[in-house]
Design a protein around this nucleic acid. Structure first.
Length: 765
DNA sequence: ATTAGCCGCATTTTT
DNA sequence: TGCGGCTAAT
């Protein structure tokens, strides 16, 4: 059954018993499959009950996939299992033991935005000018300290470049958060770690409970995450860590690859299992990946192989400008889509988000559907954050952060001055904002009173309404919906708010809460068989945490545009890795240092291994960057590729600036451009682009009157039938043999350019 | 309370 | 260049 389709190494990993294991799992080697199958196997072999397994990942998406795949193999309630993200699991443990962790049940999670505004507020209160100390400096200081597992009193003075000032502010931040029951993301982990460190009974409980501990993407763990994991190490539990040092691309945010080697030693790993068979990419692509990564020195050592065919060679194209690079990619995408690949199976990858603009522009012009990743996510949108703030207040009227966010939104005549007064009052009397406002006078008092009454009214309604209905009522009563409806261009925001109502609906279904269960009603977890839920929790509170921990994004249609970082873990039929230029990729500043250079190379490795069938690498000789045109040499990564597995679709440009383009217009243009005013550069560039495009068009336009494909003869005016577009007539043919593209005028769908070799066409007499 | 205009900045990011 | 964030002006 489920063990049958594993290769010997996968099987070995899945069935390892009585020993800690480190699995080196290459890209596309079936890592998730091994993890989930192992859990299923442990349960089916009765080596473990679902209750005694702890499985940790980094993203909600990965956690969800794990749960779904496990559910398909074992007939148990996977929701009740401890499978989740570091943050999600810590949150769950803290909910279960809030009191022991020094928290009250209504603790609230701060996301990054909230944390930043909270820090800014503190700096303001302390009368520290933002020029003296940037809020970002402080926030980084605090987060990095927490990720090392250090509280304010544990941070070394050497870390504090402001002579103790940062440590003091960290202390103050700790106190303020504690007072208001706020936890930032890092705090979820650190607080949970503290709980397990100082509460011996609980630590022992969990050590005995979790017999099997499995960790995904181990190369991405930071110091605190690894420390946290080790708290669960008791007398006889078994650790199973899966990772790939070659895919470690997050050291800039504290990921510590060294954790893999440390784990190997500290846990006395006997068998380092390597999963090296790749099930994703064709031969040529995989060869490129292996060759590139071999340039790195510090590796645990791994070489991927595949049983797939060689497939297409990796195609390389060098454009003269970023816009030509984009048009070339767009043109190729059109032909790929026309020959039957779905747009969502194509990805355009780049090193930095700013590069997306040219592609968006070009794809939009050519009516190619696309989706850009990396913008604001659903729960981060301003209107949603406002709605969430109202809900936080419904849960607990004394939440300051939320109160300050919406006390005057939509505007209700409570100005900055009134708010300041209110805060001062609360500080002086050492009470919270709701209790402080009756001490105010005049208009401010009346307006705040009315605001508080709105919340109280929503609260009383919420007693009898389920969450979706509560949100609907809140949106109306708070005036949020009305505010955006009357605002010009507010329709998107209104739609998002309505989407929040559906999100609450889905939440009930996902969490198996009964439809009529009220927002504020405590759940009878026994009766509902939701015993894994902590006591003293209502659906509203659960939803609020969910909103903070989940970004709320779903896969969308269209060509996928994203950074290489964002593409990790995904795969596509066709992948375009763009902007392969020195300074961009590898990024400037990372090229001089050996370690960061190697991380750039791992990034390249990750990018290459996303592709299943077709891989395209592009670069541009000139690029608009920060308002100037810069001229970059092509990336060293292009030189590191094996010649026999690649194919240049443009004249291979030399790495030394001198050769190929020495006498070309492009190079002259480059020379002149340095001294020209900006608008003139633009003009020139446009002209240049035109020439390039025409040249490209001409090159392609070697007209052929007759093309033979699959024994079928295609000529101009031949009538054809396509299963996708119906009947049409060939208008023109360009290119030859496998590359021949025909423009076909379809009766129903208009003009399309199809690849004659790929498109499924029949000739009609 | 809204808005124009100016300044400064500019990898990669999940929770 | 193009943006977000902040200030100054209506």
């Amino acid at each position: 059954m489920y063990l049958n389709n594993l290769n010997p190494h996968q099987l070995q990993a899945v069935t390892l018993i009585n020993e800690h294991a480190l699995i080196l799992a290459g890209a596309g080697s079936g890592k998730t499959k091994v993890l989930t199958t192992r859990i299923a196997w442990l349960i089916n072999q009765r080596l473990a009950s679902p209750y005694s397994i702890l499985a940790v990942t980094f993203t909600n998406k990965a956690a969800k996939e794990m749960q779904e795949r496990l559910a398909s193999m074992v007939d148990i309630n996977v929701k009740a299992m401890f499978i989740g993200t570091f943050h999600g699991l810590c949150h769950r443990i803290l909910r279960l033991h809030a009191k022991e962790a020094g928290l009250s049940n209504d603790f609230q999670i701060l996301d990054m935005q909230d944390q930043l505004s909270f820090i800014k507020k503190i700096l303001k209160e302390k009368d520290i000018d933002e020029d003296t100390l940037a809020p970002k400096t402080l926030i980084n200081f605090i987060n990095q300290a927490k990720e090392r597992g250090e509280r304010s009193h544990q941070v070394s003075m050497l870390q504090d470049k402001f002579n103790g000032k940062l440590i003091n502010l960290y202390k103050h931040y700790e106190d303020s958060c504690q007072k208001q029951n706020l936890l930032d993301f890092a705090e979820l982990l650190l607080r949970c770690d503290d709980l397990l460190t100082y509460n011996q009974a609980l630590r022992q409980h969990y050590q005995e409970r979790f017999k099997y501990i499995l960790i995904d993407e181990f190369q991405d763990t930071n110091t605190l995450q690894y420390t946290w994991l080790k708290r669960f190490r008791g007398l006889d539990n078994i650790f199973f860590a899966v990772g790939d040092d070659d895919q470690s691309i997050y050291s800039f945010r504290g990921a510590r690859v060294k954790n893999m080697r440390d784990f190997e030693q500290e846990f006395e790993v006997k068998h380092l299992v390597k999963l090296e068979q790749n099930y994703r990419s064709d031969g040529n692509i995989l060869k490129c990946a292996n060759t590139i990564i071999d340039y790195n020195s510090a590796r645990l050592g791994k070489n991927l192989f595949t049983q797939s065919s060689e497939g297409e060679k990796v195609k390389i194209y060098s454009a003269s400008s970023d816009s030509i690079e984009a048009s070339w990619v767009a043109q190729y995408i059109t032909s790929i889509i026309d020959s039957g690949t779905k747009a969502q199976d194509i990805a355009i990858l780049y090193r930095s988000n700013a590069q997306s603009r040219v592609f968006e522009h070009t794809l939009f012009k050519q009516h190619i559907p696309y989706k850009v990743y990396g913008g604001l996510r659903f729960f981060e949108r301003a209107e949603i954050k406002h709605a969430i703030a109202y809900l936080q207040l419904v849960d607990n009227l004394s939440q300051q952060v939320s109160m300050l966010r919406v006390i005057n939104f939509p505007p209700r005549g409570i100005g900055a001055k009134a708010i300041e007064q209110l805060q001062d009052l609360a500080n002086n009397l050492d009470i919270n904002l709701v209790d402080a406002y009756p001490h105010l006078q005049g208009k401010a008092r009346v307006n705040i009173h009315n605001f508080v009454e709105i919340i109280k009214d929503i609260q009383s309604q919420a007693m009898n309404l389920n969450l979706a209905d509560t949100i609907e009522y809140m949106l109306a009563k708070s005036g949020l919906i009305h505010h955006y409806e009357t605002e010009k261009e507010g329709q998107d925001r209104v739609n998002n708010l309505k989407e929040l109502i559906s999100a609450a609906h889905s939440f009930y279904i996902e969490e198996k809460l009964p439809h009529d269960c009220s927002s504020l009603g405590m759940l009878d977890t026994k009766e509902l068989e939701l015993e894994y839920l902590p006591p003293n929790v209502n659906p509203l509170r659960l939803f609020l945490s969910y909103a903070m921990l989940e970004s709320g994004e779903t896969q969308q249609q269209g060509v996928q545009l994203m950074t290489i970082h964002a593409s990790k873990g995904l795969e596509f039929d066709s992948v375009f890795i763009t902007g392969l230029e020195e300074g961009l990729f590898p990024n400037e500043g990372n090229a001089n240092n050996q370690d960061s250079m190697e991380e750039e190379r791992r990034l390249m490795y990750v990018a290459i291994t996303r592709a299943r069938k077709n891989l395209f690498l592009t670069c541009s000789q000139s690029r608009m960057l920060y308002g100037r045109i810069s001229f970059n040499r092509s990336s060293r990564f292009l030189d590191e590729l094996p010649v026999e597995n690649t194919k240049w679709l443009s004249p291979k440009n030399s790495r030394s600036k001198s050769n190929d383009f020495d006498n070309s217009d492009i190079y002259n243009y480059a020379d002149q451009a340095q001294t020209m005013p900006f608008w003139m550069q633009n003009k020139l560039k446009e002209k240049q682009d035109m020439n390039e495009t025409n040249a490209m068009a001409q090159k392609l336009a070697i007209k052929h009157t007759k093309i033979i494909q699959h024994d079928k003869i295609f000529k101009i005016n031949t009538n054809v039938f396509s299963t996708k577009f119906g009947e049409g007539t060939i208008v023109s043919i360009e290119g030859e043999s496998e590359k021949a593209l025909a423009k076909i005028r379809f009766k129903k769908h208009g003009d399309k350019i199809l690849n004659l070799a790929m498109a499924n066409l029949n000739v009609i007499d």
